[in-house]
Amino acid sequence: METPEAPAAGRTVTLIGKPGCHLCDDAREIVTAVCAETGAAVEEKDIEQDAELYRRYWEQIPVVLVDGAQHDFWRVDPVRLRRALVG
């Protein structure tokens, strides 16, 4: 018996933040939960380890990208993220 594919399989959510950022910690919880529900992959990037990310996003962290496109910053809305992933 085949297992149905998760609705967001093949999608990637990237969380851009930095250590010690409480908003990043909050965003991580939401992103992790929504991706677990939808089947999307999660990756994290630290702006302190990447000069280009730091230049682009340092005033906005945490930043959430969906498939490489900016989706949210500062606060992550789980309903909006879920909608972006599953249509």
Rank of each mutant, 00 (worst) to 15 (best):
A36V: 06
D46A: 10
V79N: 12
V34D: 02
Q49T: 13
W74Q: 13
R55W: 02
T3W: 03
E43W: 01
I30L: 01
V86I: 15
H71Y: 07
A27F: 04
D46I: 11
P4N: 06
P19I: 03
R75K: 13
E43I: 10
V86C: 06
K18N: 05
R11Q: 09
R28E: 14
P62D: 10
A33R: 12
K45G: 08
E37P: 02
Y54F: 13
R82T: 10
V64F: 03
V34A: 01
A36R: 08
D67V: 09
L65T: 12
D72S: 15
R56K: 15
A40H: 03
R28F: 11
V63H: 04
R56F: 03
L65F: 08
R75N: 11
Q49E: 15
C24N: 10
P19S: 14
P78Y: 04
A41W: 00
V13G: 11
V13F: 02
G17E: 07
V42C: 07
W58Q: 14
E37G: 10
G87R: 10
G10Y: 05
V79Y: 04
E5H: 11
C35G: 07
Q70K: 15
H71N: 07
C24P: 05
E29P: 00
A51H: 06
A51K: 13
D67C: 07
D72A: 15
V31H: 02
G68D: 02
Y57Q: 04
H22N: 03
T12C: 10
K45F: 00
L15G: 07
E5Q: 15
E37I: 01
A9K: 13
P4K: 14
V64C: 04
A9L: 13
G17Y: 04
V34W: 00
V79R: 11
A36F: 01
P62Y: 07
D26M: 14
P78F: 04
Q49V: 08
G17M: 01
V13I: 03
R82G: 07
T3V: 11
A41Q: 13
E59C: 03
V34P: 07
I47L: 15
Q60M: 15
D77Y: 04
V66P: 03
A27P: 11
A51C: 03
H22D: 12
H22T: 12
C24W: 06
A36C: 05
E48Y: 08
P7A: 11
Q49H: 08
F73Q: 11
G39V: 07
G87T: 10
A51R: 12
W58G: 00
A69Q: 15
A9Y: 04
A41Y: 00
V13S: 05
E29W: 00
W74G: 06
C24D: 09
A51M: 09
A9N: 08
A40Y: 00
A84P: 06
R82M: 06
P7I: 13
P7W: 07
Q60P: 01
P19L: 06
L23M: 12
A84K: 09
V31Q: 00
E2A: 15
E5P: 13
G17Q: 09
V64W: 01
